[in-house]
Amino acid sequence: MGRVKNKITITVNGSAHEVQAEDETPLLYVLRNELNCVGVRYGCGVGQCGACTVIVDGKALQSCDLSVVAVAGKTITTIEGIGSLENPHPLQQAFIDEQAAQCGYCATGIILTAKVFLEDHPHPSQDEIKQALSGHICRCGTHQRIVRAVEQAAQKMRLTP
């Protein structure tokens, strides 16, 4: 006698998806394992590192401590939804231009937080960027380049909104 499975539908990168997992499953595992959004990365499972950040109805949230039932009916954007290898988002391009990665594991979550941040802060100072990214851990020490990349992206996004 298993738990009764409710039909939950979430919208991820523009497509509706009927969730297979149980209601209390963290969104992280649904995105990675049902939708193959592997750019959403497991780091801590308790919302402390930012590696699993996604955008839910316009807000950057950590998908590891968000149950899938809590986002039923909501619109979710993952790193795969904002750009691609062939057509990167200005933030992704800025990370490439600034070579703002060592291992790169933290980068996808940071890019999504930065995207939401830049929508409200088109002219950010370095300190504001650092503050905005303070929920993310980068263990390789690439912070300085990441801040530069976000600055560079802000500039480009102002020119071509």
């Binding site: 790193i79 290898l85 890019i111």
Partner: peptide, 23 residues
């Protein structure tokens, strides 16, 4: 020279890059 890292574009666009991402 400062040749660009070959792995960064995939890593920042969410392409499977790590053993954690394999399926």
């Amino acid at each position: 020279t400062a040749a660009m890292r070959m792995d960064i574009p995939a890593k920042v666009t969410g392409v499977a890059s790590y053993v954690q991402d394999m399926s």
